[in-house]
């Protein structure tokens, strides 16, 4: 058996794939956080809860309405995005004139409510979600077995992240968004409906989280705590990358997923804390984050 640094290639590539998958979720979630933060100046603590909601919507669609995975990929982001738009209009919009920390506190409260309601209704043990038949099975590569679904998750999230980047950097709507991030008052004076843009941005960001939730459902079981577990890591990812750049968020997300995977191979005890340690090092060396503008 081939080995690198005393570790078999199978184990290494297996963990790297797992890292890449975690990285896909980090990238999608931190991308949504960064877009929302750019325009709303709110760190959306409910992001994890809405990711979890996306997974639950997929589960409910399958088990109660008989609608499969592909429908869930479409419906869950729309449903959660709509829910997010309501949250923004009814609650968050009242706080924009106050200290940004109130937005954090409000969304933390929302996260507790959403998570509590799902736990109340579905219990805290995970619910299984089967891999859709089109994506089950896998490829036997010379050095490892590659499950189709996992390859699909990595590819899908890459496509989603890059199209989001294109949407923001290359389209008219994205130009409005970037302009409003720089100076909302001026953009409003030019006749752009900034409040609507803000609502759409929030809905889009949380829709992205829900989409990540659907992708995650067959890999991790669907359970109410899945959002809380991941959101704190994503916060660290955001601190490491800085929220100034879209591509930066994507790169940092995937990169840290890989680092986490590597740590699992070489020093498993540290795998749950490695991202936080990297965050500490980055704070010492470059406090504004790898891709951040100084704040």
């Amino acid at each position: 058996m081939t080995t690198i640094f005393g570790v078999s290639v199978q184990a290494l590539s297996g963990q790297l794939l797992l890292g890449l998958i975690n990285g896909s979720f980090y990238a999608m979630l931190s991308l949504g956080l960064a877009i929302i933060f750019g325009l709303l100046n709110v760190i959306n603590f409910a992001h994890g809860a809405l990711y979890m909601m996306g997974a639950f919507v997929a589960w409910i669609l399958l088990n109660e309405l008989g609608l499969g995975y592909w429908w869930a990929l479409l419906i869950a982001p729309l449903a959660v995005g709509l829910f997010g738009a309501l949250l923004e209009r009814l609650l968050l919009a009242r706080l924009y004139k106050l200290d940004h920390l109130y937005g954090l506190l409000l969304t933390f409260g929302l996260a507790l409510i959403i998570q509590g309601l799902f736990r109340q209704h579905y219990g805290s043990s995970g619910l299984p979600y089967v891999i859709p038949p089109e994506l089950s099975g896998g490829q036997r590569l010379p050095f490892m077995f590659l499950p189709n679904y996992r390859a699909w998750v990595v590819a899908a999230s890459l496509v989603i992240c890059l199209s989001t980047w294109l949407l923001i950097e290359k389209t008219k709507l994205g130009a409005y968004l970037r302009a409003a991030t720089e100076n909302p008052t001026l953009v409003g004076a030019f006749g752009v409906n900034v409040p609507l843009l803000i609502t759409l941005t929030y809905a889009f960001g949380v829709g992205l989280a829900a989409l990540a939730g659907v992708l995650a459902a067959p890999i991790y079981s669907v359970n109410p705590a899945m959002g809380a577990d991941i959101i704190i890591v994503v916060f660290a990812v955001v601190v490491i990358g800085g929220m100034g750049s879209i591509l930066g968020s994507i790169l940092t997300g995937f990169g840290l997923g890989l680092v986490e995977g590597l740590t699992k191979v070489f020093y498993p005890e540290a795998s749950s804390v490695v991202i936080f340690v990297i965050m500490a090092v980055v704070l010492l060396a470059k406090p504004s984050g790898l891709f951040g503008r100084s704040a």
Binding site: L91, R94, L105, L106, F108, G109, L110, L112, G116, R119
Partner: peptide, 13 residues
């Protein structure tokens, strides 16, 4: 947890 969350939301708003 749910009630704590509601208290949070009500207090902040």
């Amino acid at each position: 947890t749910i009630i704590q969350g509601c208290v949070f939301v009500v207090c902040v708003l």
